[in-house]
Design a protein around this nucleic acid. Structure first.
Lengths: 154, 154
DNA sequence: TACACAACTGACAATTTTTTTCATTTTTGA
DNA sequence: TCAAAAATGAAAAAAATTGTCAGTTGTGTA
């Protein structure tokens, strides 16, 4: 958990740069997001988990903190098919949001951290004059494991 | 509006194939979706508009119809930053969902109907074994008009 | 035609998710 | 030390969506 502490400190700095504080509630929220990276938890789910660390925290604070982190681009909000907002920490070294693979069979969400869209974004700039600063890309389909199962069962 | 009628009849056929009817309420919903294509209206917004055609319709029916159209892949649900579900008719000749350009300055949503992702999807198949069947791609950035304005004001 | 049945509907209640309000507490800087 | 600003929890409120249910409509079949 050494890396976690470093990461939290770093995020604390970003908050301070924006004139805000790393309160115990915010620390617990960030730490939980770190702990459950790639899990795409909703505000409610996070609230339940964060309360284990910081039992006094209220749901509204979790919402407020998540909004704050999203605004500062420390976290990203993403919505899959159920319509509930979910939260992901943005990777330190990536300025763009990562992509998701959503399996229609098992429902699993995989992450892709390479930036597949460099060329596409240049095309968008040339053809439409649109300057891309960020993106949301989710593929719907069948994951490797489920493809295998389908083949076997035939 | 000749094309609209054709399009509605065609969608009626799809419903029948699935064992469902093209009721007046559903017809009014589809027709409104056609009329306001590319507007990305929410269920509430559609409800207000549809009532002008079909005053007896209830909000629940609009939700039910939109769910139905989404399931039959006649329409697509998409969520932008405000978290509200919005609905787009899928283009007849496109089997994939189209893309969106969301301007952070003026808030406008443009559509891109060309499929920029063919190569990316092959890459995803090769690298991750994930068979893509559909996608959601939204670019966040600055549209051509706003870029121009920003330059001028400097 | 009559009838049975399934699809469909509107009204409204209920639920779920998110935001707002407000009184109180904490922190910070002068 | 003290005043202002920032942050918080609890609860109410708002917004979005879904479920319930009694009644209607349409369809196929005898």
């Amino acid at each position: 958990m050494v890396f976690q502490e470093e990461r939290i400190t770093e995020i604390g700095k970003k908050l301070h740069q924006a004139g805000m504080k790393l309160t115990p509630q915010r620390r617990a929220t960030v730490s939980t997001l770190l702990e459950y990276q790639t899990k795409h938890l909703s505000a409610e789910e996070l609230f339940t988990l964060i309360k284990q660390k910081e039992p006094e925290i209220g749901l509204a604070t979790v919402y407020r903190t998540l909004d704050l982190l999203t605004e500062l681009r420390i976290a990203d909000r993403v919505t899959f098919e159920d319509g509930v907002a979910r939260y992901d920490l943005r990777c330190e070294d990536h300025q763009h949001f990562h992509h998701h693979l959503l399996c229609s069979v098992c429902g699993k969400v995989e992450e892709i951290h390479e930036d597949l869209l460099v060329e596409v974004e240049q095309e968008v700039l040339h053809k439409y004059g649109f300057k891309v600063r960020d993106h949301r890309l989710t593929f719907h389909g069948i994951c490797a494991a489920c493809s295998k199962n389908i083949k076997q069962s035939n």
